[in-house]
Design a protein around this nucleic acid. Structure first.
Lengths: 206, 206
DNA sequence: GTCTATAAATGGATAGAC
DNA sequence: GTCTATCCATTTATAGAC
């Protein structure tokens, strides 16, 4: 590979991959191949370094995975928080829910290797790694519960549905799109509209 | 372990685990721990034999996994087919959909280690194994598409929803329950009713 | 049908040079 | 921050005895 970079005063050597470089590659490979199929050698090769060099940045494979999982929740959480915060104060319940669904789905399907990697491999990593990710998850779940509870108190949602169960159904359904979503068959934006339609109004003709 | 079996004229030696014994253990372990975390040694130990003995029944680990995946789809397919077949001929669209949802969910959450293992590990196995499972999957998907199309032609479902997408949303949402379902918080039967309610009528107060 | 023994490959991880 | 070299555990799979 020829050196195409021009001289800079930057302190960071251009040959350095760095912690973030390793993490970005790891997130992509975990999303594509799953936890068990991705070895440190694979990550290193894709990042353009040797496997042993990874241990300068991380203490173990699980430390890498843990960092990817946390960043994945943070990304989708931030996406949702932003989508809600930007709404006018007089926004109705239906529009707020649509915004949250769209934010979650876009983060998952378009924006973040970290978020999609999280959904894809969470069930595959060792228990200790899952446990380490739980606090971050709980915070995101609380954000959803707060939104749903607010809508229910407003009278927009049926009063007999259990918030926790509704959140599990909703996020579970959205995350499942990762297994079959194909951008050639329609955008994430269009898909999020369909999901909102179904969850809000159902599929029965009326 | 003491031998508690009485003498029988059976041809099958009581000390033999057999192909089915290996397969049953494998399905359970795959469901519990995922594909990558389950080695042939683990399967063998849980079955009470040595790892090398497995090769008398199967040619490779992937052959075991492939058998588990196929049996998993067969089980849930049969569960749904049966639930539909048993309905009176004058059953309405809503009740038919509820029956299918219930059958899928019960097979997944209560009946079959094979079905739950399929959902859990399909995304973790090598591409060749996934490909081998595809024909069986397609047949089950076709069953759902046939049901949904029939309901749509009857005018029970909205005419503008895409059948394939609806099936992917529905099955994806149901399969996702595997990650959080807890029988102590409510039966699979009750959960299937909630899912049917949401998909049929939505969650908005009206 | 199951065993012991072992081959061959691959995994995570460490030591020390540059 | 990255390298080479290496260790050690574990994996899938095979050979041949019982």
């Amino acid at each position: 590979m020829a050196d195409t970079t021009v001289s800079k005063v930057s302190d960071t050597p251009r040959t350095s991959v760095g912690r973030d470089g390793v993490l970005n590659v790891a997130a992509r490979l975990f999303r594509e191949q799953g936890y068990g199929a991705v070895s440190l050698r694979k990550i290193a090769e894709a990042a353009g370094i040797k496997a042993s060099s990874i241990y300068y940045h991380f203490g173990s494979k699980d430390e890498i995975v843990a960092a990817v999982l946390d960043a994945g929740i943070e990304a989708v959480h931030e996406s949702m928080r932003q989508a809600i915060a930007v709404l006018p104060t007089d926004t109705g319940a239906e529009a707020a829910l649509r915004a949250a669904i769209g934010a979650h789905l876009r983060a998952l399907l378009e924006v973040s290797d970290y978020s999609s990697a999280n959904v894809r491999i969470f069930g595959q990593v060792p228990q200790s790694v899952r446990d380490a990710n739980l606090p971050t998850r709980r915070a995101y779940e609380a954000e959803w519960d707060a939104l749903l509870s607010r809508l229910q108190k407003n009278g927009a949602l049926q009063r007999d549905v259990d918030i926790r169960r509704l959140r599990l159904m909703l996020i579970g359904a959205l995350n499942a799109t990762l297994e079959w979503f194909d951008p050639d068959r329609g955008s994430a934006e269009a898909l999020s509209r369909t999901y909102a339609d179904v969850f809000l109004n159902g599929i029965l003709e009326r």
